[in-house]
Simulated scan of single mutants.
Amino acid sequence: MKKIMLVLFGLFLVVACNNTQKKEETPKDTSKETSKETTKVIPKIYPDKLQKVFNAHGGIDKWNAAQTLVYEMVKPQMTEKHITDLHSRKTRLEGKNYTIGYDGKDVWLAQKDSTAFRGNARFYHNLYFYFYAMPFVLGDDGITYDTTKSLEYENILYPGYEISYGENVGDSPEDNYFIYYNPETYQMEWLGYTVTYFNGKPSNKISYIRYEDWQKVNGVVLPKVITWHKTDEEGKLLDARNSVSFDNVSLTTKTMENTMYERPEGAVVVPKG
């Protein structure tokens, strides 16, 4: 009986040891570590001079950390309030007797009567956002950067970059931007841009906006006034044509409720094209 008990005890020890070895040999669960690695944010690399432009305006990391941009755009005939989610690019524009929005899928228009908003709401809904959010929107994905010929104005040469977009990036990927900066301070001073017509044909004509009046909002340098300039037949810059100013600007990490951008009852979806 004692021999039987000793044998059973020995078998118990063998099984216990084997189980212990199996537990020690089981690979450590690294799913959490793998998850951390796959979600690790890899910083984008920009051309050296463009990175200096971003830095001169407060830094693109600070811009990317923000969530919502709000400003009032003052035009001669009225003031519009623009609200933009910087990550989803959902928008809401509130004008006199009309509201335009983008809910992440559709552009919509709500107006008091059919003449309240004159223009193409789809083309307009983010037009001034791109002008206003310079130079930071030039850090978006799907962009190609190439150095371009310096822009001359009043005997000063402004070096710059040509910005082009990949296919299917935005409503008008054929559009090009040209950013020009002060060679000493690296602060942005000019924007050139082309426009794709509603028939889908891009224009070769470059329009120019001057950025010379700035305001600091939560550590980020944003425009106070932007001014369009005339050009001659050869594209040479001439005097100022018209200006738009921006007031009551806020840049926060707060996310607006989705209802801010949702299409209200009675609003119509604006089709592409």
Rank of each mutant, 00 (worst) to 15 (best):
H82V: 12
K236M: 05
I179F: 09
S150I: 05
T196M: 05
K230I: 00
N120K: 12
K22P: 02
E257N: 11
V169D: 03
P43E: 12
K236Q: 08
I209W: 13
N168S: 14
M256D: 08
T147G: 08
V268Y: 03
G160S: 08
A121I: 07
L8H: 09
L222M: 13
W108G: 08
W214M: 12
Y161Q: 02
M5C: 06
M134G: 01
E25S: 14
I226C: 12
A56F: 11
V74R: 15
I209H: 08
E162N: 12
E152Q: 14
S31F: 06
L237Y: 08
Q21Y: 15
F117Y: 13
D232F: 01
I4K: 07
D140T: 01
L11C: 15
R89C: 07
V217H: 09
E33M: 14
D247F: 00
Y153P: 02
L69G: 06
T231Q: 00
K272P: 04
Y153D: 10
W108Q: 10
L191Q: 10
I156C: 01
L127V: 01
L138D: 05
T227F: 13
L251I: 08
N18C: 12
K272I: 12
K40R: 11
T79L: 11
K96I: 03
I179Y: 03
A121T: 09
S88F: 05
